[in-house]
Design a protein around this nucleic acid. Structure first.
Lengths: 227, 227
DNA sequence: CCAAAAGTGTTAGTTGTACACCCATGT
DNA sequence: ACATGGGTGTACAACTAACACTTTTGG
């Protein structure tokens, strides 16, 4: 024992429709009900449990506070500046998670839990603004060299849906033709043979993840939250 | 307080000459003098200090146990499986560091501190073999998309020396001509105008880091150990 | 002069990007 | 028929990798 509290928090990302039905990269936050920072919004989390792995604590506290189950979960960074909490020394092990669109709809929403657009956050408790900035930076980087975008989508999806995930997260338009070829070349995805009907245009093919390809190369570490 | 001990450890890398005077990627380890794992080699480190940042604790414990000062220091990962220490729950925040060749020669060496080739380690205490494997993976990845190789070298250096750093760490030969052009194109380095004389061949140019270019892009996080 | 490493030039193959164009559907 | 997004083809630029070649030193 050395007078240091150990906490686990998670930055959760989902793509949710806004008032105009456009998808927005969003983060659920919880309102603090006690000091310090009472009334401020903060990342969901909780104290570390002596009997539980850190991954498990992240998944559990995430579920307890928001009702969500992540499709992807990875440790982000450990924040431990001595002055980051006015109430004493707290070291936070922070995770980041991706949840699917349909899953995000089932999140607990009450006066103490709410979704915010990732790039329009209020002043958060502690150093949580910095933490979210870092998580956003990692998400955007990792999207470009891994297949994690799939974790935002359901079992099957069109390439247009996958491209829109990239476009929304990276905040820039992508050429549909070139995107298609990149994804096909990466072998991350296999056509189901089915099509989506009902649109006002040519029915797009449905694809499925190639489960034999890992979402991310994490080297010697066994991925925590890959399905 | 929750019955969890918080420790900080560091994987330190340096390039040191072996018996045949060939440079080898090496790691200093300390021998444990008490249970658990008494007599086993382990990563240098120590308990977290309530008044000190994690970066500072890593730098301090690194200096206390090995006598080394790192040219580069970055947080690696936080390891916290419940069963990783037989003596109770320990969460380790692990850093990785690079030290320069001349600095490495000044390391404390006694019966309880010794250098090992990074790819020929004995069975280490706790999960430290996994940790070193992960640090190696990160080092090799990061070498390819950043300028951290410079942290192994002194103030000035030849491009051949820089290329040898890459070759040793990545364990494969690199084309000298293409390597030169890549480095020059990256603008990471500026010629000093001086040359190394005394070799049996054409005297190579000496280069210096371009201090206006960051070694690594760490996004919103301020780098810990960049000079 | 010769060996060896420093440094430059050239070319072929690969990858990225822009954009023209055809395809299949609902209205 | 036509608007709309799905999907294919193509051409050019940029980058990579392989390797021939020239330069400069010590012996």
């Amino acid at each position: 024992m050395n007078g240091i509290d150990l906490a686990v928090s998670t930055v959760i990302f989902a793509l949710r429709p806004d008032a105009d039905d456009r998808l927005v990269l969003s983060i659920p936050l919880v309102r603090r009900t006690r000091e310090p920072f009472e009334g401020h919004w903060a990342l969901p989390g909780g104290g570390a449990d002596a009997a539980e792995s850190l991954d498990a604590t992240a998944a559990r506290t995430l579920e307890e506070t928001t009702g969500l189950t992540p499709a992807y979960l990875e440790q982000l960074y450990c924040f431990g500046e001595p002055d980051r909490s006015p109430s004493g020394r707290v070291v936070s092990i922070v995770y980041w998670a991706l949840v699917r669109g349909d899953e995000a709809e089932q999140a607990t929403i009450d006066e103490n839990v709410a979704w915010f657009p990732a790039d329009e956050l209020p002043r958060l408790a502690f150093d949580h603004n910095l933490i979210v900035d870092y998580a956003l930076w990692r998400l955007r980087n990792k999207l470009e060299y891994s297949r994690i975008a799939h974790a935002f989508l359901g079992e099957t999806f069109t390439l247009t849906a996958l491209r829109q995930v990239h476009e929304i997260v990276l905040q820039r338009p992508l050429d549909p033709a070139n995107f298609r070829r990149q994804i096909e070349a990466s072998r991350a995805v296999v056509p189901t043979g089915e099509h989506v009907t009902g649109g006002r245009h040519r029915p797009p093919r449905l694809y499925r993840y190639d489960a034999t390809v890992d979402l991310v190369d994490r080297g010697p570490l066994t991925p925590a939250g890959i399905r």
